[in-house]
Structures are given as structure tokens and as C-alpha cells.
């Protein structure tokens, strides 16, 4: 017994060091399991408000860029307006229209919620955005996030108060389903941790017709992102050795260097679909 105490007393510094390192490594490895823990949520709230105050100053320096991108987004939306299209002359044919005219609200499945980005990182191996705004109260964990031009940006991982933390595409745990626009093959997007703005599309079988510059869109196979949101364009194509899949490098459409506003995708179908999935898992 005495020897144990002597040992502890002698190596107390080394033991403290190892203990603290152990805590750190535990935090790193188990983070995804308990990132809702109260202390971390409180820390997020503090850092969120600091980021917000700082962003208020910095925002002025980027007004011009933000304005340009808003004009571009507006132009895109205006071009989709119904009044810009010539309707076919239907006066000669009488047909009973079974679709209700003002039914848009009833059949709406997706709502876009805008939010302001108050902090974003690209330099780390695990990158996050912090978003802020009145709409945050309507958001929930797991919702998809698109940038101002409706390009896939990330997924919400944590919410506290008026702030939400978004895991961007540039994160080692980020797994988003995407497909090729031309052929429709679906694969998984992940990041290899090297270049920001270049991500990898995996699980596309060899023999699929792909070429440099092809568009990659969200597949719509999960409820997080609807089908057809732009992900990026193909930058390079490699053949994986040992598997029958291609390894495709995609240049992201979202520019992570200057994100100012984002849209969070609120899909009404998420809850029923997830409930069904849970039920199916139980039966197995």
C-alpha cells in the first residue's frame, strides 16, 4: 500500500499528464455521441454570441459581394416565375382540371428558412459553420443546409438558443448522398481532408459514363436534401484499384470561403419517413 502511494507521489505529474491526454482523446473520439451535453451547448452559446458581435463589424466589408450574390439568386428566381412563360392556348379544348388552383400551401413539402452565417471555418480537418437568426427556432438537428444559390453546404448538428452549428461538407463525418445528373447513378459524398472546395464522390460503378465537368446533384434518396440541388462539377476521375468503383473528385458549387447567408431545408416528410424507417427496423 505504501509503495502505491510512493509511486503515485513520485509520478504524479506524469499521471496527471496522461489523465488529461486521456480526457482529450475521449472527447475527440466520443464527440458525436454527446455533443448535446449541457456544457458544450453553453459553450456554443457563448462562442456564438462572440462570433455574432464580430460578424456585425466584418459584414460591412463584404456587403458588395453579398449584394452581388443576392442579385444573382434573385435573377434565378425571377426567371422561374410563371408569368415569364407563355401558356399554351387551351381555349379550343375543354378539359376538366382535377388539380386545385390555389393548392400550393397544401401540397408544399419543403420550406426554405434563411439564416445568417456568423462564423465558418475551412482550415481545420473538421469544419463547422455557425448560423444565427430568428428562423433558427424552427430548425431541428439533421436538416440540410444550402447556400444562397441552392448548392448543398452541410447538415445541422447542434442547436442552442438562436444559434445552430452546421457540419459543412468539409468534415470527416459528412456523408451525403449525391447522384450524377446525366446518368442518375447515386453515390456518397465525403471529404478526404485535403483541399477545401474539392470533395470525393464514391460508390459510382466503373463503366458509368462520366466526364470532366459533369454536374453532380443531390440524389433525393434521403429527406435531408430534395432531388436536384447542385453539389458541384466533376474535377477529376480516378479508377479505384481493388474495387469496381470510381473515385470522382468534385469541385463544390458552394464557395466555403465566403458564405454569408444560407437556406435551411425544412422537409415536412422527414418525420413520417423516419417513423416508417424506425418501424421497419423494429420488425426485422
Amino acid at each position: 500500500m505504501r509503495n502505491i502511494f510512493l509511486f503515485i507521489r513520485r509520478y504524479i505529474h506524469l499521471l496527471t499528464f496522461l489523465l488529461l491526454q486521456g480526457i482529450c482523446i475521449y472527447l475527440i473520439s466520443r464527440y458525436s455521441k454527446f455533443h448535446n451535453a449541457a456544457i458544450l451547448t453553453a459553450a456554443n452559446r457563448v462562442t456564438g454570441s462572440v462570433f455574432k458581435e464580430f460578424d456585425r463589424v466584418e459584414y460591412y466589408f463584404r456587403l458588395k459581394k453579398t449584394n452581388d450574390s443576392l442579385v444573382k439568386a434573385n435573377e434565378d428566381l425571377l426567371n422561374r416565375l410563371k408569368q415569364n412563360f407563355i401558356l399554351p392556348d387551351t381555349s379550343e379544348v375543354t378539359r376538366i382540371d382535377s388539380i386545385k388552383v390555389d393548392s400550393l400551401q397544401k401540397f408544399r413539402s419543403i420550406t426554405y428558412l434563411s439564416a445568417k452565417v456568423v462564423s465558418s471555418s475551412i482550415a481545420a480537418q473538421n469544419n463547422f459553420l455557425v448560423i444565427n437568426g430568428p428562423n433558427v427556432k424552427k430548425m431541428s438537428i439533421g436538416m440540410g443546409v444550402a447556400d444562397i444559390n441552392f448548392a448543398v453546404t452541410g447538415i445541422i448538428t447542434d442547436i442552442s438558443g438562436d444559434y445552430a452549428v452546421v457540419m459543412s461538407l468539409l468534415h470527416k463525418d459528412s456523408r451525403i448522398s449525391a447522384s450524377l445528373k446525366k446518368s442518375g447513378e447515386a453515390g456518397t459524398l465525403l471529404w478526404d481532408g485535403k483541399q477545401p472546395n474539392i470533395i470525393t464522390l464514391k460508390n459510382i460503378p466503373k463503366g458509368t459514363p462520366v466526364s470532366k465537368g459533369d454536374t453532380v446533384i443531390s440524389s433525393g434518396l434521403s429527406t435531408t436534401f430534395p432531388r436536384g440541388l447542385l453539389v458541384g462539377r466533376i474535377n477529376e476521375i480516378f479508377e479505384e484499384t481493388g474495387t469496381s468503383n470510381l473515385n470522382i473528385k468534385v469541385k463544390t458549387a458552394a464557395n466555403f470561403y465566403n458564405l454569408e447567408y444560407v437556406y435551411v431545408i425544412d422537409n415536412i416528410q422527414t418525420t413520417p419517413v423516419n417513423q416508417l424507417l424506425e418501424k421497419a427496423k423494429k420488425h426485422l
Partner: peptide, 9 residues
């Protein structure tokens, strides 16, 4: 770490 949202590193 709290500014990077991933504790431990």
C-alpha cells in the same frame, strides 16, 4: 476548441 466546435484537439 469551443470556437472550433469539436473539443479535445
Amino acid at each position: 476548441d469551443s470556437f472550433r466546435h469539436h473539443p479535445g484537439f
